[in-house]
Structure formats: C-alpha cells, structure tokens
Design a protein around this nucleic acid. Structure first.
Length: 375
RNA sequence: GCACAGGUGGGUGAGUGGUUAAAGCCAACAGACUGUAAAUCUGUCCCUCUCAGGAGGUACGGAGGUUCGAAUCCUCCCCUGUGCA
C-alpha cells in the first residue's frame, strides 16, 4: 500500500496510481483530522470522493503519529492529549475519537487506535503499553460496531450535485446503499473498482521486542475479535534482524485465513520476505520518500541517482524494469532532473519506485501461487 | 582626468590588529531515509602527509612597509562600479 498520508501520494496523481495498478492506499487520521478536518471530508462526500479514488483506502488511526510527535503529547487512559505540529493548537485523540474520525473519512479499512511502543522499552513499559493498546482495542471495537458505515463511501451523489459541491449538506448513507455501492465520479467516468464490502476494523498487535509479549498481545487481540490483524510497533529504530524475528514469531499466532498486515515495512527485500512468510498487507513510506530523495530501488539494487557517476549514463535506470520511466528516460536525464531540482524528478522517481514495489509484490504472489500449486 | 565606492576561498558574502584555514548561504561531492511534522536531514568541501589525535605548506587584487602578530593599519601600483568632466 503506497502511503498517501494527506489524501495524496506525494508526487503522483490518482490516475497514475491507477495505471500503476495500485489497489489500496493508506491515509492518515491524525493528518486529515488536523487538515482539512473530518467535517470537510464528510461534506465533500468522504475521502474516496474528495480525493477521487474509487479503489480501497485504509486509514491509520494516528497511533503512530502520537508516537512520533513525542514531545507534543500526553498519554492517559482515555487517549492522548497533544498539540498540533501545524499551529500548536491542543487536540485529543482516543479510541472513540479515532473511530469517529475514520468512520467519517469513510475508509474501507480503519485501524484501531493503539500506542506504538517506542524502542527501546523495558519489560515493564512494553507490557503496560501493550495492555493499554488492548483496552483501547476493545473500546474501538465497541464504538465501531455501533457507528460504522455500511458502505464506505456513503454519499448521496445526487444530493451533492443538486446542492452544488460547496454547499452540500452532510452526506447520507441511503442512496449509496441502494445503488451499486460504487462511488459516482465527478468526471462521470465509470468507477474502475467496485466493492460493496462493509467498513472493516483491524486490531493491532503490540508487545515491544519480546516474543512472549507479542504472543500474548496477538492472542488477546484475537479474543477481542477483528476481521484482520496488524503487527504494529516495528520499524521504530530497532535492528532489522530483530524486526524480522518479531514479525516471524508474531505471525505464527495470527489466523492465516484473515488478513495479516505488517505496518510500516519495508525495503523491497523485506516485503518479499515477509509476503512469503505469510504477511498479506504492508505499507511503507520508503518507496515514495526515498524516490523524492533520489534513492531508487532496482533489480540491480539501490541506485542513488544523484551520484556524479550517472551524469552521462545513457542507460535506463533499471534495464529489467518496464515502468514508463525506465522505458523512456536515461539515468543521465534523471540525474539532471534531480540535480536541477525539477519537480519532474520527484514524479518520475516516485513512479519508478512504486512500480518496482508493486512488481516485487506481483512476483512474490506468482511465486506463492506456484509453490502452493506444487503442494 | 577628477570624485566617491569597492576588490575575501568554485559563486555569493560576513569579518576592519591576535580566540581566523577565515561565519552564513549556494554550488559540488558523499551518506541517511522503513504505520510521512521529510522536495528533508547529516557529513565533506585550499594543498600535502597522517600512528586519524593531528602535523606541515599556501591563502583575503599585486608589491613593499608598520607591528611580537596583518584579510584587517600605511605607501605605491593594478582592476571594477557609479557620478562629473
């Protein structure tokens, strides 16, 4: 899942994402809550319609932001009081509030509000954090059960149109439920993707870097019961081998017939490895951020396109890649765009990295299918 | 020709007697980036050695000079900009 924190995958437009074959995007509760605010998104017909994306969206709960905005927050039993990184204004996010926001955004998959345990954390701290996440998970589930949307993009499109977009009243669920379930697009085009699945809430496993705690967290989260489970609290500064150990051991305790989502990971090598190990979903800012910083992932390894050695390199970025960037442009041109600070550098680099990640996942799926077929 | 202003490391530009191999910014070069406060951040950036802590050399238009000590003060010269002839 490419990460589109603010309702946009930095550097690429929705039609490019569609062409790349992206099936699901990640959005972020914390950021969208601060700007433009849930009410605006609701009035614009939900996040799908607002950003004109008719494929799936998963919203992260804000738990990670609360963790990374460390010095601006205060955690209590009920949630987190924090200050906006934008203007310093005080806000509160807790299990119920995080659910309310995500339901309002209308994502297909919403994440429980968790506490992302920092690294390193001692045994006592890791347990306390895990227990808090478990209590919050139960509260999230209770609130969600009573308030979730039956159809993620619950919009009365006709009502929005007749009222004029800017004056549209709050959307209702009725017409979307009675219709195809798909979101009518502003441009009148047929939606490329359709689902009538209900909005789903996933639980998140924590437990720090302790295998026993992870196991306990997994079992107790399963006891609460969710349609999918995430492994959170990783990629927070720990050594990569430790990440792998925790992922592999935690995975064993999660039901293999439900989606298993590893949050915030990883490099192409890592996502391939984890997918083979049974992880179904992953998200990571690495492909998009690294692209904007001139780091490109290729079949021959990492390429730092800003390096002087590529100044007159006529060859494509990755000879084995079939993305439109590799088919059309030379390394020399990509380096020039980057060095010249051209916006196009970020666009092209992002397109390539996303393509590479998606191609990696397709290859892994093919491999898994083949090995399943082989028994 | 006269009168002002000014010449600093690849560029720009601080510095007007010692703590200055010379701030900051840019360029250049390298590195980092993993549920996005990230078009961000870090390092190197005169030359030569190095036991990696340092050692030596050269340097603020040029040449002299004053001084224990000069990018900084003085003299002459060269060059640039602006104004007046």
């Amino acid at each position: 899942m490419p990460v589109g924190t603010l309702g946009s995958v930095k550097g690429v437009s929705q039609d490019v994402l569609e062409d790349l074959g992206v099936e699901i995007l990640l959005g972020n509760t914390y950021h969208l809550f601060l700007r433009p605010g849930v009410e605006t998104v609701r009035r614009m017909g939900g996040l799908h319609r607002f950003m004109s994306w008719d494929r799936a969206i998963l919203t992260d709960s804000g738990g990670f932001q609360v963790f990374s905005l460390n010095d601006l927050r205060k955690v209590t039993e009920d949630g987190v009081a924090f200050r906006s990184h934008l203007d310093g204004s005080p806000h509160f996010l807790g299990p119920e509030k995080a659910m309310e926001i995500q339901i309002g955004l209308g994502a297909d998959i919403v994440m429980a509000f968790d506490e992302c345990t920092e690294y390193p954390a001692d045994a006592e701290r890791a347990r306390a954090s895990m227990e808090l996440t478990l209590r919050w998970a139960a509260r999230c589930k209770n609130y969600f059960r009573e308030h979730k949307c039956e159809v993620p993009w619950a919009v009365d499109a006709a009502e929005l149109r007749s009222a004029g977009r800017t004056n549209a009243s709050a959307p209702t669920r009725a017409s979307a439920m009675s219709g195809s379930g798909a979101l009518p697009r502003l441009d009148g085009a047929e939606p490329r993707h359709h689902t009538d699945a209900n909005q789903a809430l996933f639980g998140i496993v924590q437990g720090g870097m302790d295998a026993a705690l992870r196991r306990e967290s997994a079992l107790r989260t399963i006891d609460i019961g969710f349609p999918g489970y995430a492994i959170g609290g990783l990629s927070v500064g720990e050594p990569r081998e430790l990440t792998r150990d925790i992922v592999l051991s935690t995975l064993e305790h999660l039901p293999s017939d439900q989606p298993r989502y590893l949050m915030g990971v990883g490099t192409p090598e890592e996502i391939a490895q984890y997918a083979q190990a049974g992880v179904d979903m992953m998200d990571c800012v690495l492909p998009t951020r690294a692209a904007r910083h001139g780091l490109l992932f290729t079949s021959e390894g990492k390429v730092s396109i800003k390096q002087a050695r590529y100044a007159q390199d006529e060859s494509p970025l990755d000879p084995a890649c079939e993305c439109r960037v590799c088919l059309r442009y030379s390394r020399a041109y990509l380096r020039h765009l980057y060095a010249s600070n051209e916006l196009l550098a970020q666009v092209l680099n992002t397109v390539h990295n996303l393509h590479f990640y998606l191609a990696t996942m397709r290859a892994v799926r093919a491999w898994i299918r083949a090995s399943d077929a082989a028994g």
